[in-house]
Each structure stands twice: as structure tokens, then as C-alpha cells.
Computed example of a mutant assay.
Amino acid sequence: MTETLYLAAELQSVGTPALWAITIGGVIALLALDFLVTRRPHEVSIREALGWSAFYIALPLAFGAWVWSRYGSKQGVEYLTGYLVEKSLSVDNLFVFMLLLAAFAVPPVLQQRVLLFGITGALVLRAVFIAIGAAALQTLDFAFLIFALILLVTAAKLLRDAVTGHEQEVDISKMRSVRLLRKVMPVVEEYRGTKMIVKEAGRWAFTPLALVVVAVFATDIVFAVDSVPAVYGITEDPYLVFATNAFALLGLRALYFVLHAALSRLVHLTYGLAIILAFIGVKLGLHWAHGIWEGVPEIPTLASLGVIVGVLVVVTLTSLRATRGLTKGEKEIVAGKR
């Protein structure tokens, strides 16, 4: 994976081969640390979740400060803006993870292991999409236009889902990944710790843990299709794209448990993300048109950062106001989940 990413990155990147190797090695080390933490299944306390969340927020911010000081304000602003976009999208992804964990009735002691598998799968998929995206931008003149259309379509879908509540529906029996696994081998009814395959009456069978992990992997593909074009709308540097994705994903395991209760209050987040993705789609479209005719204006990255921060602040405040004093069921109705 390192060689593939570097070949794409050397076309245009602040990342040297040594920096790519250090970054990927660091990501692998952090994933290994997370697997060690979850090696003994346990229910995550709020104190533990807050500690890890603080670490995974401080680390990317410190890295952003280093990028700013080492490469200048342009790369620094691009990194911070890209990280903010990816972190915002990852919080929205947590909604889906929360629904999957509930739909599969995952025991609390196994939830962080499922999340970690999902994060690992997402990192691998994003690495592949980043390499493909870098190659496309260098060889296809209209790649920016394609990315713009992907984001505009995604924004329209998010807006539709926010209005109809469609994205909140999780029917396990209709999931293709689950149906495919059931055709391969039978599935036992109860969880067996961290085991995904067990032997029952002389026959191998999947556990429910295998089903939920595969379901999470399937959603990772959808998330990668949306998030990679979004951050390429902020920076064309594959190294910064990879770094923002990696840092945004690594802290999701702990952030899930911190935000689990608060997620139900962010009822307008999907509207905000739809606006952000549509804005980045327009930004990419203008960038593509500028390459054809210089008279077409472009949106500066610093202005993009201001728009993204402004949208997130507004939807957070309106969400908190809309759900003030409401019960959990009432919050779901306001969010369009029922």
C-alpha cells in the first residue's frame, strides 16, 4: 500500500518518501494500539472515551501546526480545512454505525471492537480511493468536474434523506452483505465473544459479530466514495488528503462513546453536511471551469474554511435549540427518524 500511495503522491505532494513511510507507520502503530486496548472486551466508560478522544483531537491539531510551520500557511489551511470536513463527515458516519450496532444488538463490551474493524476497513478503502483520485486528477482534465458532480448528487441525497428520514432505516434482512454471508455459511443466534466463526455440531458457522463487521465494511465503501472527493475539493495534495482522512478516522472509536448520547441532539447535522458538500462541489466545478477560462472565479481555501465553520456552528446551535427539553423519542421525530 505504501508504494501505491507514494506513486500517486509524488505527482504533487508535500510528502517525501520518508514522511509517507513515517505517517503510514504511525497510523499502523495507532491501530495496533487500539486493537491492544480492545483485546479484552469491556464496556467503555465515559472517562476512558474522553481521554482517548482528547488524545485523537490533540494529535491531528499538533500535526496541523507542524504542517503550517514546515510548509507554510497555504498547506496549513488546506490541512485544517480538510480535517474539519472529514471529521464532520465522520461524525455523520457515526449515526449509521450507531444504527447498525443497535440493529444487530451488539453487546456493549463488543461495540468498540466492531467500530475498530470498521475504522480499519475505512482506512484501507480510503487509501485506495485516494490513489485512484490522485491518478485521475493528473490524467483526466474533467476529473474535477466528475468529483463535483459526485458531491452535488451526494448533497442532494443527504438533503432528501434528512427530510424523509430514509437514511435512518436499517433493515438487516435486506442488506446484501448479510444475505450473502448467510448463503455461504449458517449463522448462530448468539454472540461468542470476539469470535466471528465457530464450530457447531461439526459444522462451521458465522457469529452475529461477523455479520455486523461485514455490514460496517459495506457502509465504509459508501463513505469513501463521498469523503475522498470532498477533501480533494480542498486540496489536491494526496499526502494531505490521506493525513486528514487518517486522523479523522482514528479517533472515531472513542468519539462514538463520547457522542453517543449527544448524537440524538444533532438533528440538523445532515442539512449542514448537505450544504457543505454542495459548496465544495461548486468549488470544484469552478476550479475545473477556471482551467478552461481564466475569467471564472475560484473560491479560496480560507473562504472555504470560514463557510464550513459557519455552517457547522449554525446547525449545531439550531439543533440544540430544536431539541431543548425534548425526550429521546421527540428528538427522533424532529430529526426525521420516525
Rank of each mutant, 00 (worst) to 15 (best):
R338G: 01
L159M: 11
R176Q: 14
L84N: 03
V222P: 02
G202D: 06
T154R: 04
A135Y: 12
V267M: 13
A9Y: 08
F242M: 14
F55I: 15
T301S: 08
F95A: 13
W52D: 13
A49W: 01
P297F: 05
M175F: 04
L320Q: 08
K283G: 09
S304K: 04
R39W: 15
L249Q: 03
I234Y: 08
L312W: 01
L99Q: 13
T235G: 12
A135D: 03
A8F: 08
A8T: 04
E189W: 03
R70V: 11
L266K: 02
S173Y: 02
G329E: 10
Y83P: 02
R265V: 00
S90P: 00
V228H: 09
F142E: 09
L181E: 03
V85T: 10
W204E: 02
L240C: 05
T270N: 15
D220C: 15
M1V: 06
A335K: 03
F242A: 04
K157V: 12
W68D: 09
R338Q: 12
P238N: 14
E330H: 07
G336Q: 03
I57D: 10
I57S: 11
A205E: 03
A135N: 09
G193Y: 07
L259G: 07
F63W: 07
L31A: 05
F97T: 04
L94M: 13
A105W: 00
V315H: 05
R47W: 14
A9L: 11
A136Q: 11
P238L: 09
V258S: 09
L302C: 03
F223T: 00
P238T: 02
T316I: 10
R113C: 03
I333V: 15
T154C: 11
L116K: 04
R160C: 10
A274I: 01
L252K: 02
S319I: 02
I28E: 06
E86G: 06
V91A: 10
V114I: 07
A248H: 05
A102W: 00
G233S: 10
L149I: 15
V128S: 01
I292V: 10
A246T: 05
W52F: 15
V91T: 10
H166K: 15
M185V: 00
I130C: 02
L50Y: 09
K87C: 08
T323G: 11
R253N: 08
V214K: 12
E48Q: 12
Y83G: 04
R324T: 08
G329R: 07
R113Q: 06
E10C: 13
Y191E: 02
G193R: 11
L159P: 01
R321Q: 09
I276P: 01
I28N: 01
V91S: 07
T164I: 06
G64K: 00
V198P: 12
V222G: 14
D161Q: 08
T81S: 05
A8P: 05
S53P: 06
L61C: 14
I308H: 04
R70I: 06
D237W: 00
A162E: 04
L286I: 12
S264R: 04
L99K: 08
Y256M: 07
F117V: 01
L305S: 08
S304D: 05
